[in-house]
């Protein structure tokens, strides 16, 4: 079964999507879309580091993206620059430094496009195995920190006052993003990773009433996007990474379609069955 390149690609993509969906929900809830994107942009530098040190490329990517995340957290304390400016600086400078580093290593003949936009049709058996190992690892850790991470996401002071170790939980969360970036890179590439994290989560929002359901839905929507995108890529000869992202975007558009019953259930009328609310009350 794994002899077929298309089956391998499908399995690899679904594995990535299953982990990226729930993790992406937290990225959406915590408003970290560009934070994640900046981490992803630094991944090429990780690839260069991996080549330069002769270590595993995935390990290099995890290391560099984690360092980038910590650097961002540290720079957040600079009160004279806003976060979006910092993210813009970090994202493009790390990507540029990565591109320069790769080009300086003249002996390397790597396919830059494969790193930037993904090359899922080239994944081998070992890649598929590694993707599933890391994806299950990410999901197990995420499940373990789910409750404290959600509490910190809803209200950090509240969570800390009630004994949730906010710092370690957040650090672990960033490490999970780094791991997902490292193995999602093969599927959609550095420049498109954020979409695989965010679009399925956004598409799941309207159909979900609890955070847990939104996470499960995001994983499923991501997997469907991979299946649709890869088939589109196969039948119309489209680039596979962009095809997957486009499929996810179409699913997101579909989720915006008016669905009277679900929409009404998500926002019931103010539940004051008896008297009209006093005029001052309300927000």
């Amino acid at each position: 079964m794994l002899d077929d390149f298309f089956t391998r690609a499908l399995l690899a993509g679904i594995g990535v999507a299953l982990a990226a969906g729930p993790l992406g929900c937290f990225i959406v809830w915590r408003r970290m879309a560009y934070f994640g994107d900046t981490m992803a942009h630094s991944a090429l530098l990780g690839v260069a580091l991996g080549f330069a040190l002769g270590i595993d490329l995935t390990l290099g990517v995890v290391m560099i993206t984690t360092v980038a995340a910590l650097l961002l957290v540290f720079m957040q304390r600079a009160p004279w620059l806003s976060m979006d400016t910092l993210l813009g600086i970090m994202a493009h400078s790390t990507l540029s430094i990565g591109l320069i580093a790769v080009s300086l290593m003249a002996w390397l003949r790597i396919d830059l496009m494969a790193y930037l936009f993904g090359d899922i049709l080239a994944v081998g058996r070992a890649d598929v195995m590694w993707i599933y190992l890391s994806a299950s690892g990410v999901l197990v850790v995420l499940a373990a920190i789910w409750r404290p991470l959600l509490a910190v996401t809803v209200h950090e002071d509240l969570a800390r006052a009630e004994g949730v170790p906010a710092g370690p939980v957040r650090l672990l969360f960033m490490l999970l993003i780094a791991v997902v970036i490292a193995f999602a890179m093969k599927v959609v590439g550095i420049l498109l990773i954020t979409s695989l994290l965010i679009i399925p989560a956004a598409a799941a929002r309207r159909a979900a009433r609890t955070p847990e359901r939104m996470a499960v839905l995001a994983a499923l929507i991501g997997a469907i996007a991979v299946i649709l995108g890869l088939h589109g890529s196969l039948y119309w000869d489209l680039p596979s990474g962009p095809a997957i992202v486009t499929a996810a975007a179409l699913l997101f558009l579909l989720s915006l379609a008016p669905r009277p019953r679900t929409a009404a259930a998500a926002r019931p009328a103010r539940s004051v069955p008896h008297a009209p609310a006093p005029p001052k009350e309300g927000q």
Binding site: W29, V154, D157, A159, A161, G163
Partner: peptide, 28 residues
């Protein structure tokens, strides 16, 4: 053991949360 009711708690609409789920945020 502290129970805390913070000032100005607002909820982001992007995070689906029912009252039941909010109640068990830091305890089971």
């Amino acid at each position: 053991r502290v129970g805390y009711l913070p000032q100005r708690l607002s909820f982001d609409p992007v995070l689906p949360l029912t009252v039941a789920r909010l109640m068990t945020l830091t305890v089971r």
